[in-house]
Amino acid sequence: MTMTADQPKLRLAIVGAGRITRQSHLPAALGHPEVECCALVDSCEQRSLEVCRDLGVNIPIATQIEDVIEGLDAAVIATPNASHHQIAVACLSRGVHTLIEKPMAVGVEQGQAILLAAERSNAVVAVGYHMRFRQTVTLMKKLLSDGYFGTIHRFSYTFGTDGGWSPVSGYIMDRKSSGGGVLVVSGSHFINRMLYWFGYPSSIEYQDDSQGGPEANALIDVEFSKTEKPIRGRIRLSKTVELPAGFVMETDRGIVVLHDHKDAQITIGESYDDGCRIQLTIKDGEMPQGDEYELQMNDFVEACQQGRNPRVGGSEGLESDRFFQQCYANRMAREMNPFASTAGDAK
């Protein structure tokens, strides 16, 4: 479905009335001049009512997508991860464009089914890796592609909080519902960026501290062998230990640092030295700036209207899902796993 400028507003439903909808998706949709929010869908009606009340809006409420799907052009799917697949396929098979919160699906098979449904109906699939709308992410891709840094030797990414995001439904407590732990819940944003920057790794080694539930700590070693000299990387993720959030890369040109907050800039400095760091920025006006969720909504709406690919499409979402699946399938044996022996010290 391709829309033209004189067509009516994009009729959008938001599926899932949890925290991310309340804080980000719904405000972004309400603020878009070419979007009509025509339904808020959640299996818990009370949750939808509370969101509407708190935001002071009056949006029709439904408890299942099938009740409103006929009148829709597009849908944002922000439900527990394991339900993305079913809702997305229901929407896409009726030609309803979808913006799916990350991860796109739980496992490659579900992701492929989503892409197939989109291909058949020629509908747009976008995946909610909102950090991809940061200027620095695009700039880093350009600098890497242009060979600005010379040879890349290795990189490290860490992210760790002592607790954090608490979804309204509590779905993160159940591995079946979340599809994984810290890797999927927090690490997925960097994994998506890493795949965008470096491509898919030739080797992945994965360890975590799961004892049956979603993992709270994960350690991933990757290697990319497309370049003359392989690039090695280590990703450390935690939901129990505070770690600085950011990306550091050792290159011929120096140590490249990109902290993990929206105002951070790419800097280069002398190797392990307190010397001056150079800050790399994009020229003003070269890329749109603003709230990442608003930019994501703009991109999605434009993609629907123009029939073009969104910035983060289903194929990229599938690559991320493939990475998660490969990690979990190749989890290192317990005796090799540093998390296994010292998860706690209870006797």
Partner: peptide, 13 residues
């Protein structure tokens, strides 16, 4: 709330 309960969540309790 589950947000701070990852030490338990990982055990599948």
């Amino acid at each position: 709330s589950p947000g701070n309960a990852w030490g338990l969540i990982r055990q599948g309790l």
